[in-house]
Design a protein around this nucleic acid. Sequence first.
DNA 1: CACAAGTTAGTTAATAATCATTAACTATTT
DNA 2: AAATAGTTAATGATTATTAACTAACTTGTG
Lengths: 201, 201
Amino acid sequence: MAGKRNTSTNRKQQIIDAATDLFANNSYERVTMSMVAKACNVTEPALYRYFSSKEKIYEAVLLSLSLKVDLEELAAWIKASRDIEEILQEIAGHILNNNLKHTELSRLLLLSSLEHRTLARQVFTAVRLPYIDLLIDELKRLREMKLIRDVNPVITARCFIGMIMDCAVSKNLWGKMQGERFQIEEVIENNVPIFARGLKE
Amino acid sequence: MAGKRNTSTNRKQQIIDAATDLFANNSYERVTMSMVAKACNVTEPALYRYFSSKEKIYEAVLLSLSLKVDLEELAAWIKASRDIEEILQEIAGHILNNNLKHTELSRLLLLSSLEHRTLARQVFTAVRLPYIDLLIDELKRLREMKLIRDVNPVITARCFIGMIMDCAVSKNLWGKMQGERFQIEEVIENNVPIFARGLKE
DNA sequence: CACAAGTTAGTTAATAATCATTAACTATTT
DNA sequence: AAATAGTTAATGATTATTAACTAACTTGTG
């Protein structure tokens, strides 16, 4: 009945992918090994060949997510700019389109940070903090050049990133509300300029 | 051994209170009937006299929360104002201090909307939507008076409320980050003016 | 006022389902 | 033949829920 076999690395990645999908839509405890196994077309004990526990699978999922956050390119691009609106635009676009284009990710991260207290910090650090730190630097830089007002860079950065992440989550979660459904582009186009204008001197 | 007995209404409220606390700090599946029972100093089957299932307890918790959102007073206050900054300030303050002063609540609501798909809409409607609708009206009003720019009121309102709710959640969740811990007042004082300035003509 | 009869609030003990994990074994690949 | 990828079947823990019973209140009637 069994037939073909998969290679170890393939299978491992398949498990992570399937688990990512599941954890993004259900809480940690609601995802069962049976669900993961079924999604991979194997039996539950097969999973234990690759991960010693459910917790380890979860950790692998988080790790694979944080690896995807690479801000090198974005940072380089941004540091050449002197316009806060352009900078915010780029950051928002990067969050919404590049890294969190699978919007499951933003859900997963929020969800995990809400329920797994110990992992929350690590998740936050891996995904949210890099953006915040980048923006803090930019705010300081522009402030020194007197291009923006004297705001608290830490609070402001946290707030802006939070706003964008909330958009990412809300969009798919609450979808059509008040009779209207919006595209990410519309949301950025409307909100980023508001924030940018408020920062300008 | 048994001794005193509690009245039905007292006990029911006690169960809801205890469950609110538990659901706010653990996900739905992580909260067990045993935990709820212990918190109420009764045995598990006793809970079934008041609620026919765990799900029903959860629903009762959500219901009791949504009942607490009363915007009458806030709405009256706000409609007298012609200053967008003042309006945003009041709304933010109301969210952060009045309704979500037990920050567990905001966690619980976010968490539940993230994992219980069916209840998500109902939770959203109960807690988030009233604020959004109120702000939409105000934005339209001020726009007609040419006091703010021509922005999409729905997107803008959603975004602002999302930003504030994210602050409420983030504050307690991630607490001290980047070496600094902020008070809600500081956060409002920094962010609301940015948003308000960006909206002004 | 008394007090039996019924109702309500609670208990202990059992049930059935689900879940993560392990043991022991088999088939496939190298 | 050695190593790897997978299986079936069992285990033990936890869980929500129910059954069967008991103690404490309430009420209607003499």
